[in-house]
Simulated scan of single mutants.
Amino acid sequence: MTYVRACPFAEVPADGAVGVEIEGTPVAIVRSGDDLYALNDICSHAEVSLSEGEIYNGTIECWLHGSCFDLRTGKPTNPPATQPVATYKVKVEDGDVYVSLGSDD
């Protein structure tokens, strides 16, 4: 599995998100409590940036229509979104966040 540097860990706000682009893919790097997640930054319903939304209860909320996505699975937890967003492996090394866009398979 190949990891690519996404951003400095210090740039990811506590209980917030930052949007980055990795190899042409928009990715939201999200901190929720002590946990770090990476998921596709484009809402599956309205094609807007999820990293601009609120983080709460293990979800990220799309700011446009209010769909929430589970940070672990990418699955929507309420309408209007019905399709999940991709999730990615993420790790922190030497103060930087690294993301793998590859699958676990």
Rank of each mutant, 00 (worst) to 15 (best):
V48Y: 05
K75S: 12
N57V: 13
D34M: 13
G66I: 05
E54G: 11
R72V: 15
E23V: 03
A38W: 01
D34R: 13
V30F: 01
S51K: 00
I55N: 02
P26N: 05
A46N: 12
N40E: 03
V18Q: 02
S67W: 03
H45F: 00
G24D: 11
S67Q: 07
L50I: 13
D41S: 04
G33I: 10
L39R: 00
G24S: 06
D34G: 10
V30A: 03
L36D: 05
G24P: 04
T73G: 10
L50C: 08
Y37L: 05
Y37N: 01
A46C: 14
C68A: 12
V30E: 00
L71M: 06
T25Q: 09
E52Q: 11
N57Y: 14
R31Y: 10
E21R: 11
S32H: 10
S67R: 01
T59L: 08
F69R: 00
D41N: 06
N40Y: 13
A38K: 03
E23L: 08
R31D: 08
A38D: 04
E21I: 12
V48W: 04
S32L: 07
G66C: 07
H45C: 02
L39Y: 05
G24T: 09
Y37E: 00
G74T: 11
D35M: 12
I55M: 01
E54T: 14
I60N: 04
E54W: 14
P26A: 06
S32V: 07
A38T: 03
K75R: 12
F69Y: 15
E21S: 10
D35H: 11
I42L: 14
L64H: 09
A38C: 04
E54K: 13
Y37H: 10
V20K: 05
E52L: 14
N40L: 10
E52W: 13
V48E: 01
E61W: 05
L39D: 02
N40Q: 12
I42W: 11
G19S: 08
V18I: 15
S49F: 05
V30G: 00
V48H: 00
V30P: 04
I22H: 06
V20N: 05
L71G: 04
E23N: 14
Y37R: 00
G33V: 14
I60V: 15
T73F: 12
L39M: 15
N40P: 10
Y56V: 15
I29Y: 01
T25I: 11
C68F: 07
H65K: 06
E21C: 11
E52I: 12
I29L: 08
I55V: 15
G53R: 02
N40H: 14
I29H: 00
I55S: 01
C43I: 08
Y37T: 02
V48K: 00
V30N: 00
L36I: 11
E52G: 10
V30Y: 01
G19M: 03
V48R: 03
V20S: 01
T59W: 06
R72Q: 15
C68Q: 15
N57S: 15
T59V: 11
P26L: 04
T59D: 06
G19V: 02
S67G: 09
R31A: 13
I29N: 03
L39Q: 02
